[in-house]
Design a protein around this nucleic acid. Structure first.
Length: 418
DNA sequence: TGACGTCAAGATCCG
DNA sequence: CGGATCTTGACGTCA
C-alpha cells in the first residue's frame, strides 16, 4: 500500500511550483518557469524518496498553459533530458505518479469548444506522462463533468467523447465521483460501459452520496472490480471534512485516529491512497509512518525533530509527554505520538510557551548571529511580551536568520509553517 | 453576473 | 528598499 499527496509540498526547500499570467507568458518566461518547475519536481521526488512516499500527484501547472495555444513551445523536446531523468528516478524508486486535471476540464459539455479544449488538456496531461516514460498504471484522474439539467444526455456525451480520445489517453484515464453531480454509483455505471477504472473519493461520497445505503468499504470493493491488471493497484482518494467549513472542504491535516479507523475497516493492503489535505506531505508522512511495517524509532525521532518546536509553542505538557514516549527505543508508539502532536497543535499558544519555543530555536542561531541581530531579536521578544508585536513577526525573523546562516536543522522544521 | 476552488503572481501598502 | 497584505487570474458550471 502506498500513501501519497497532491501537487505541492509544505516546508520543502526548492520545491515550489511557479506560474505566470497569460499576458506575461513569453517564450523566455515560459522556458524559465518550466525549467524551474522540473527542478522543483526533482526536489519533491528526492523528498518523497527520503520519506518513504511512493505515490505522488504531479501538478497540472508543471507546464504553465500546457494545453493553451498561447504556449507554442515544444517543451517535451526542449526538456527531454530532464524528463527522462525524472522518469528514471520515479521508476527506480517504485513511485507511482498521477495527474488530475481540475474541475474545468469537461469533456461532456454541450459546448463543442469547451470539449475541444478539454481534449487538448487531456492530451497535454498524457504528454507529460509520455515524456516521463510512465506506463498505464500512472493515471490521469478526471471528473465526469456537468449535468446540464439532463444527466442521461450528459453521460451519453461523456461516453461519446471518450470514444474519440487517443488510445494513449484512454489507457491512462480513470474517473472519479465528485462532490456535486456524479455519485460513485453514476460513475460505476459509466465505468461498466467504458471499462474505465473508478477512483473512489470518500469525502465526495459523503458530500454527494448515492441514494443506496452502501458503506465506504463496499463502494471501494465495487470500484476495485473496475481496475484491470494493466491499470496497476486500485487507487482511492481519501480526505477528511474540515468541520469549520462547508461539506466537502478538506481538513487542514489528516486526523490520525479517524484515518486509522478507516484503515482498519478497509482491511485491505493492495490499494493506493491519495490524500487530499492542506498540509500535503506532512499528513502523507504521518499516515505512511502509521501503517508502515518498517517500525523504526529513528523515523519517529526524525518527525519529532520537525514538530517539536511547534508542539512546545502550544503545550509544554505534550512536549514532555512525547519526550518520555520516545525514550523506549524498542517501541514504535507511532499513533500515540501523532495524536499528542495533533492535540498540541490544536491548542492556542500562550505568550510564555511561544517565547520558550522561540528561545529554543534562537539557541541554534545565537552563536552565529551578529550582535545587531541578537539585539533585534531580544527587542522583538520584549515587544511581544508587551503586546507591541505579533508572534509571526518573530517567527519570520527567525526563519530569515535560519535562511541566512543555513541552519538546515531549523529549515526542515515545521516551526515556520505550522 | 457572481460564487465556486486553488494557487501563485501581481499590485499595493507600510515602515 | 524589503516585507506584509490584499487582489487578480485562469478555468466551466450553475443559480
Amino acid at each position: 500500500m502506498r500513501i501519497g499527496y497532491a501537487c505541492l509540498t509544505v516546508g520543502v526547500q526548492g520545491a515550489d511550483m511557479r506560474s505566470c499570467v497569460m499576458k506575461n507568458a513569453s517564450e523566455e518566461r515560459l522556458l524559465e518557469i518550466i525549467a524551474s518547475n522540473l527542478q522543483s519536481l526533482d526536489h519533491i521526488l528526492d523528498y518523497n524518496i527520503e520519506n518513504g512516499i511512493k505515490l505522488f500527484r504531479i501538478s497540472s501547472d508543471l507546464i504553465p498553459f500546457g494545453s493553451s495555444p498561447i504556449n507554442t513551445l515544444k517543451w517535451w523536446e526542449h526538456f527531454e533530458p530532464q524528463f527522462l531523468k525524472l522518469g528514471e528516478k520515479i521508476r527506480n524508486n517504485s513511485i507511482r505518479v498521477s495527474l488530475h486535471p481540475g474541475q474545468y476540464t469537461v469533456i461532456n459539455s454541450p459546448d463543442e469548444a469547451v470539449v475541444l479544449r478539454a481534449i487538448k488538456d487531456l492530451d497535454y496531461h498524457t504528454k507529460v506522462l509520455d515524456s516521463l516514460g510512465m506506463g498505464p498504471e500512472n493515471k490521469i484522474i478526471l471528473h465526469v463533468g456537468g449535468v446540464y439539467q439532463d444527466k442521461e444526455s450528459a453521460i451519453a456525451r461523456f461516453i461519446n467523447t471518450y470514444h474519440k480520445l487517443e488510445d494513449s489517453v484512454k489507457q491512462r484515464l480513470v474517473i472519479e465521483n465528485d462532490d456535486k453531480s456524479y455519485t460513485v454509483e453514476d460513475v460505476l455505471d459509466i465505468s461498466k460501459k467504458l471499462g474505465v477504472p473508478v477512483v473512489f473519493d470518500n469525502l465526495h461520497n459523503y458530500a454527494n452520496p448515492s441514494p443506496h445505503d452502501v458503506t465506504e468499504e463496499d463502494w471501494i470493493d465495487e470500484c476495485c472490480k473496475t481496475w484491470q491488471e494493466q491499470d496497476g493497484p486500485q487507487k482511492i482518494h481519501y480526505s477528511q471534512q474540515d468541520y469549520g467549513k462547508k461539506a466537502g472542504s478538506h481538513s487542514a491535516s489528516i486526523r490520525i485516529k479517524e484515518f486509522m479507523e478507516f484503515y482498519h475497516k478497509l482491511n485491505r493492503y493492495d490499494l493506493d491512497i491519495m490524500l487530499e489535505v492542506k498540509d500535503k506531505n506532512l499528513s502523507a508522512v504521518k499516515c505512511s509512518n502509521c501503517i508502515s511495517t518498517d517500525k523504526k524509532m529513528i523515523i519517529l525521532e526524525q518527525e519529532w525533530s520537525r514538530y517539536k518546536y511547534s508542539v512546545l509553542e502550544k503545550s509544554h505538557n505534550n512536549y514532555s509527554t512525547i519526550r518520555n514516549l520516545l525514550k523506549d527505543k524498542e517501541k514504535y508508539p507511532v499513533v500515540s505520538f501523532y495524536r499528542l502532536v495533533e492535540d498540541a497543535l490544536g491548542q492556542n499558544e500562550s505568550i510564555g510557551n511561544s517565547i520558550n519555543a522561540a528561545m529554543h530555536v534562537w539557541g541554534y542561531l545565537k552563536d552565529i548571529a551578529a550582535e545587531s541581530e541578537k539585539k533585534k531579536f531580544l527587542k522583538m521578544i520584549d515587544d511581544y511580551q508587551q503586546g507591541k508585536v505579533v508572534l509571526p513577526v518573530i517567527k519570520n525573523y527567525l526563519r530569515r536568520l535560519s535562511d541566512k546562516y543555513h541552519r538546515e536543522y531549523l529549515l526542515s522544521s515545521y516551526y515556520f509553517i505550522l
